[in-house]
Amino acid sequence: MSISNTATAIDHAPADPRRKVKALSKRRRKIQDALVAYSFIAPNFIGFAVFTLGPIAFAFALAFMHWDGSNAITFAGLDNFWRLFEDKAFIAAFWNTVVYTVVSVPATLLCALGLAILLNQKIFGRDFFRTAMFFPYVASLVAVAVVWNMIFNPEMGPVNMILYTLGLDPKDMPGWAADRHWAMVTVILFGIWKSMGYYMVIYLAGLQGINSELYEAADLDGANSWQKFIYVTVPQLAPTTFFVTVMLTIQSFKVFDQVYMITQGGPGTSTLVLVYHIYNEAFISWDLGYSSMVALVLFFLVLAVTVIQFHRQRED
């Protein structure tokens, strides 16, 4: 915009030749600066525009098309949208995603906060404990998911063996990933275990940002540890908690890998989630338009959370 602005400014400039030369060289200088700046941005931005922005625009268009990937694309209008309401698998996937989110977000958050408070104290080997909690987050999902399935194996796994030694009747034993009532629990437990270390680190940063004078003041007022936690720590951590909630919610909406590896969406549709449905519709059924419509639902869920976050940040 400002290149053309400069041009108009020059047109209206008084006809002093010296000034005109000066303005011209200033303009040239400005263009040169802009070119340098663009040369910095170009390598990343071109890749980003082609491989991210383009496909995003395409995704929105595709949601209103019929396409199987090889024959001609046809316009579908709202067909794909109406289909959502009749698609039992979509409805199951939608509710499973909601259940996953509603359970795993608060559970992970509480675990992360508890760990952060525990490991914010000056204890021996603190760094080791923190690293150990964090490690599942960076560990290869394929590798740890297969271990998870072995540990939770209904017939031979150590978890059920321990339950058996504790006296639980084999008839009442949870079937974990193979049991339609327990499959979601297994996936959620895995998710909490894998990601809580990451959010613990964010909480640790939040805890370290609390002014220690607040605790001293509370001490003077004779507050006990619990009161200090409720009246100082929790309110002071509110921005962190909010941030963690938003991050966790978005992560939960797009859960896929762990479901794919632990339950394959089953038994039945008991752990089918939105991204799994997108994947199936696209790469198994090659129903690309409909798959994009499901992706659009995911997009609006995430957008809603982001908008809420944006408003909250403005209020603060």
Binding site: M1, S2, I3, D33, A34, A37, Y38, I41, F45, F48, A49, V50, F51, T52, L53, G54, P55, I56, F58, A59, L62, G69, I250, F253, K254, F256, V275, I278, Y279, A282, L288, S291, S292, A295, L296, L298, F299, V302, L303, V305, T306
Partner: peptide
């Protein structure tokens, strides 16, 4: 430089966008 904020907004707007939303068109591309 000109369009600095617009270009940066392009990045910001997609930061929360799950890759899964556009993985299919990306694959087709």
């Amino acid at each position: 430089f000109p369009y600095k904020n617009t270009l940066f907004l392009g990045y910001i707007a997609t930061i929360a966008m799950p890759w899964q939303v556009y993985m299919v068109p990306q694959f087709l591309l």
